[in-house]
């Protein structure tokens, strides 16, 4: 005996309505794959290329009441669609970075200011947060970016213009930069 869809929905909607969730998420198909998009009560807290693993990470970070709810994060998902359809360059969303440590938080704030269609380097970001020699640490922050795409770590490249790395894989980084029409330096 399986639970009928409408019964399932009634519970999920009631759970979200009563504010019982630490994170509500939905899976969202995009040109870079199926993403987990999650919101806490404070705002968008997660975009992930690896939904299964992210579930555990969210449970550890925000609390175990992580549940897939239809319409969760619908604002973020709509803006992602617009971005991939090239009808949007900037995201207008509340973000929840509360579990992020201070340095990472500063770097991510700065990252959020890197304009659409441009690239910057790890070293430049490091300098902007007042630690010019912390390029490597900035790389680590990029690698653990909880909200990729919206916080555009794909726009950060090596000093020589090399793509360097991306938590979602270099193919995705290339695709995102191509979508934005970013000029890539030769490397």
């Amino acid at each position: 005996m399986t639970v009928p869809t409408d019964l399932d929905l009634r519970f999920l909607e009631a759970a979200a309505r009563e504010g019982l969730l630490d994170v509500g998420y939905e899976l969202h198909d995009t040109p870079v794959g199926t993403l987990l998009v999650g919101v806490s009560e404070r705002g968008l807290c997660s975009i992930s290329y690896d939904p299964e693993q992210e579930l555990d990470h969210l449970a550890r970070t925000f609390g175990a009441r992580v549940l897939r709810v239809p319409n969760a994060a619908d604002d973020a998902r709509r803006q992602l669609d617009e971005y991939f359809e090239q009808r949007r360059q900037d995201f207008d969303l509340e973000l929840d970075l509360t579990p992020t440590a201070r340095f990472a938080h500063q770097v991510l704030d700065e990252l959020g200011r890197v304009p659409f269609g441009t690239t910057t380097t790890y070293g430049t970001l490091a300098a902007k947060v007042g630690h010019p020699r912390a390029a490597r640490a900035v790389g680590t922050v990029m690698n653990r970016n909880p909200i990729p795409i919206v916080l555009p770590c794909h726009r950060v490249v090596g000093a020589n213009g090399a793509l360097t790395g991306y938590a979602g894989g270099l193919d995705r980084k290339r695709l995102l930069l191509a979508l934005e029409g970013a000029e890539l330096g030769l490397a």
């Binding site: 005996m1 555990d56 449970a59 992580v66 897939r68």
Partner: peptide, 21 residues
């Protein structure tokens, strides 16, 4: 160590409904 509620829910929802019926 608590698993995400999503996995708990998927694992037990059918059994709970059968029990309640």
């Amino acid at each position: 160590i608590r698993q995400p509620f999503e996995r708990f829910y998927l694992e037990h929802r059918d059994g709970v409904l059968a029990h309640l019926r």
